[in-house]
Design a binder for these strands. Sequence first.
DNA 1: TCATCTCCATACGCTGGCGTATGGTCTAGC
DNA 2: GCTAGACCATACGCCAGCGTATGGAGATGA
Lengths: 176, 176
Amino acid sequence: MTRQRLGAEDWLRAGLQALARSGPSALRAEALARDLGTTKGSFYWHFKDLPHYLDRLIQFWEERAFEGVVARLDADLPPRGRLEQLCLLAVGLRDPDYGGAALEPALRAWALSDTNVAEAVARMDARRVAYLGDLCRAAGIDTSTAPAMLYALYVGLETLDRDDAEGVMCAALLRI
Amino acid sequence: MTRQRLGAEDWLRAGLQALARSGPSALRAEALARDLGTTKGSFYWHFKDLPHYLDRLIQFWEERAFEGVVARLDADLPPRGRLEQLCLLAVGLRDPDYGGAALEPALRAWALSDTNVAEAVARMDARRVAYLGDLCRAAGIDTSTAPAMLYALYVGLETLDRDDAEGVMCAALLRI
DNA sequence: TCATCTCCATACGCTGGCGTATGGTCTAGC
DNA sequence: GCTAGACCATACGCCAGCGTATGGAGATGA
């Protein structure tokens, strides 16, 4: 049973889930209200209007999508170990509370029609590739293509949502 | 100067371009009519309604997205050469008439809210991975992960639309 | 008990896009 | 030139979703 009274964060979580489930067109006040079993009266209490909500939603994602994975890494692992752990965590981890595996593909789709989203996604990509670059450098791996390759592979595996994603990532890591 | 009289195919090409440029929400009769410098009177002459148009659009893409690349391969190249040529062509080729690099990410986004699209994309993925598998087998490459890896890498590079996509794909091919 | 504040429900006007109806324009064939 | 058919413009009714206004329920403190 869900809580009776909702907070802004409930609406944001519901937004990410709806985005992952049905794409950007699901981000509408009345549809989200149906998902949450309430009415848009609550929505417009917590958020000024739809654009403000969407801004908060991107921000909500951006605050979690990087730290959420990196925070799980073992700090006492050597660089190469952390790199491998990161890659396998990324393709394996799926938090259904925040949309699961389909979230980021949907976000990238949303980015096509919203400049703010496009900028947030670009920032996130740059941040992640830079972090992969740091790990590769520390592990003595050539950084000319490896970070971009690992990240593209991650994005592709996430998009395709294949069952053998971990196996494929593993095979790639063995060849680097 | 564009033609005065439009055919169904003009609407389909415009649809793929709009999809790539602005995402699935751009697939509306009146918006497409604006893009083509006409009115929706023409749209509803060529198509019964929006769902029929969208079905034709998926079909239009599905008929071209596989053959369009494979037809460009040199038949007299050895298997490994064809494999490499295919991968580099795929990440390099961009036909702006059919939406360019952003098309397929947008299609995958659209698939989130439309079962028919999801099925078409899944068919296409399976077909391409199977073809990569054939090439790998013929080239004596282990097929347990290589086809899926190359394809995921392709999807990721296409999604990220990086300038160094060819270089990254090249590096991956050298390690297979 | 009562007042107050937080949060939600409902009703309303507004806009934008869908699909239809109807009439206009262009072109081919005669 | 005329006619028929292919193609497009415009106007209309309809509906879904936005944002607002207003009232009501539930908790909390005096």
